[in-house]
Simulated scan of single mutants.
Amino acid sequence: MTRRLIQLFAGLFLFGFSTALMLRANLGLNPWDVFHQGLFEQVGGSFGTVVIAVGAVVMLLWIPLRQRPGFGTIANMIVIGIAADLSLALLPEPESLPVRAAWLVAGIVLNGIAGGAYIGASLGPGPRDGLMTGLSARTGWTIRRVRTGIEVAVLAAGVALGGTIGLGTILYAVAIGPLVHFFLDRLTVETRPGPAGQPG
């Protein structure tokens, strides 16, 4: 359990940091972050606060889907937003295109590592992942179909609100699946029953 908790929080902080890298690169974001950025442009506050608020609203959608959050779900909702804000406060805004491109690529790769780490800790899906799996279970649609539908919807809403799309959006869509798959295979923690039937 100690390793799972360390891996969970390391993955969540890395996810927030990688999100900040892509934001600072300003070359396009993944669909959910386009939506988060669009909301941030409209309501102000901080980017991380918007991430946390959207996560909380998404979790409310779990209720009719009969999804149950785990510890990792709540941590995901809170820690990524905090980590993104801290990272944005520390990272300067790069001016040269080569640096921005390097930050974009680093952000995507680190995002894949982070996803493999926090999912591999097996302490509960993130709010947005749970929405996807819950809708798939209730509708009978494939995960791919549900995920595509959700991401197209949030991307369109984010663009309408002023979020940034670009080359990074395309690169993320192409690369994130293989990256998470690669690192998840290596970072998944096997859980074994403890002496009282609890996870070890």
Rank of each mutant, 00 (worst) to 15 (best):
A153E: 11
R147Y: 04
E190C: 07
Y118I: 03
N111D: 13
A53H: 04
L90K: 02
T49Q: 11
G197P: 07
T139K: 06
L29F: 01
G126R: 07
M77Q: 04
G28V: 05
T73A: 09
T169R: 04
V57L: 15
R3N: 07
P92W: 00
A101N: 01
G48M: 01
T191A: 14
A83W: 07
D185Y: 07
V43D: 14
T142W: 00
P98A: 01
I176Y: 05
S18G: 04
H181I: 03
G28C: 07
G81E: 13
L29T: 10
G200I: 10
G134C: 08
T188S: 12
G124R: 08
L91A: 12
F182A: 11
G140S: 03
W141C: 05
L27C: 11
T191F: 10
L135S: 12
A196N: 14
T139Q: 08
H181E: 15
P64K: 00
L167V: 15
G55L: 06
G72H: 02
A106W: 02
F35I: 01
L104P: 07
L179T: 09
V146Y: 02
L187D: 03
A53P: 10
A106I: 03
H181W: 05
G112N: 00
V79M: 14
V154I: 14
S87Y: 12
L86P: 07
P92S: 07
A173L: 11
A10M: 05
A102C: 06
L39R: 02
T19I: 14
W32G: 06
T164Q: 15
M22C: 15
A102F: 12
N30P: 10
R144M: 08
R68L: 13
I119L: 14
M59A: 06
G70D: 09
D185Q: 15
E93L: 14
D33F: 07
V174L: 15
R100V: 09
I63V: 15
